[in-house]
Nucleic acid binder design. Structure first.
Length: 270
DNA sequence: CTTGAGGGTCGAATATCCTT
DNA sequence: AAGGATATTCGACCCTCAAG
């Protein structure tokens, strides 16, 4: 491994090699980055640079450490060089970060599962897993066969999940998270709020007038609809905003219906 | 067992928005 | 003004499923 010098391992059928050193700094950065990213725990204000600094300063050794960070820890890490400008520290960064971390504690179960970074489990699969198992404990006890019952989960992903939960280091992280108050359960209420969009699959392209991309997604999901990244024959509607990409072309060639934000809201009966 | 299509995930690239 | 974070798109590639 170029970053830590430890031997690397490559998995059957995979193109890339993986460093097996659980403490590899380069790996840690990527893990943490993914954990806090938009589709996962969504900790605003925490990007690559900040993550690197926190890790360099030794304040974050695993993903769970984020939740026990103190204001002093952050200040110390971020202002590592110019120690003499003690009197005017970048307090705003610290404050924003702390409150973002705090809000992220109540993030949904599916986001947390996404955040774990299991091979092959992204937002969509994580959502399926969340609604199927309801909480992390039952998911961690699931066997390969249980997992394969779920649509979209085959032997490879099932194995990856079992393997992830089987690792001691990961179990430890889960424990720490639980202790820090991060242990969400699947909220059934949310999915049964309104099912006017049930059975429909949406893809969003471009910038919508009032809803953000995230907002549109949540809106659709809370009304029972499904959102994916790519347009296909199974897509029910393409929600079109400004500056659309190639998805519009694809939708047209496949005969997928194209609607705007207004129509989306009408469909949902809002 | 092999192959191909349909779906989905991930990472890179790019443009724009915020904060010091 | 500059550095950093966010928002999107795009292409590469992997997984699943079903048909040959």
């Amino acid at each position: 491994c170029p970053a830590c010098g430890q031997p690397v391992e490559h998995f059957e059928g995979e193109v890339a090699w993986y460093c097996v050193n659980a403490a590899c700094p380069a790996q840690l950065v990527r893990n943490v980055e993914h954990f806090v990213s938009r589709g996962a725990m969504d900790i605003v204000g925490m990007g690559t640079k900040i993550v690197e600094k926190l890790i360099e300063a030794g304040k974050v050794k695993d993903v769970a450490d984020i939740f026990t960070l103190s204001r002093a820890d952050i200040l110390e890490s971020v202002t590592k060089k110019d120690r003499k400008t003690e009197k005017e520290p970048p307090g705003k960064i610290a404050d924003n970060l702390l409150s973002a971390i705090n809000t992220s504690k109540s993030q949904s179960l599916s986001r947390l599962i996404t955040a774990l970074g299991i091979h092959g489990v992204g937002e969509v699969s994580a959502g399926d897993l969340a609604s199927h198992f309801g909480n992390l404990d039952s998911l961690s006890k699931a066997g390969v066969d249980d997992l394969q019952q779920i649509e979209g989960i085959g032997p490879n992903i099932a194995e990856a999940i079992v393997d992830w939960f089987g690792r001691k280091a990961n179990q430890k992280v889960l424990e720490k998270l639980k202790k820090a108050g991060v242990n969400p359960t699947f909220n059934v209420q949310r999915s049964t709020l309104n099912d006017s969009l049930a059975g429909l699959a949406f893809v969003v392209t471009g910038t919508l007038p009032t809803l953000s991309r995230e907002g549109a997604k949540e809106f659709i999901e809370s009304n029972g609809g499904k959102v994916t990244d790519s347009v296909s024959k199974k897509t029910s509607y393409l929600v079109l905003g400004e500056n659309p990409g190639s998805k519009l072309e694809k939708a047209r060639s496949l005969g997928v219906k194209v609607i705007g934000e207004e129509e989306l809201k009408k469909l949902a009966g809002a």
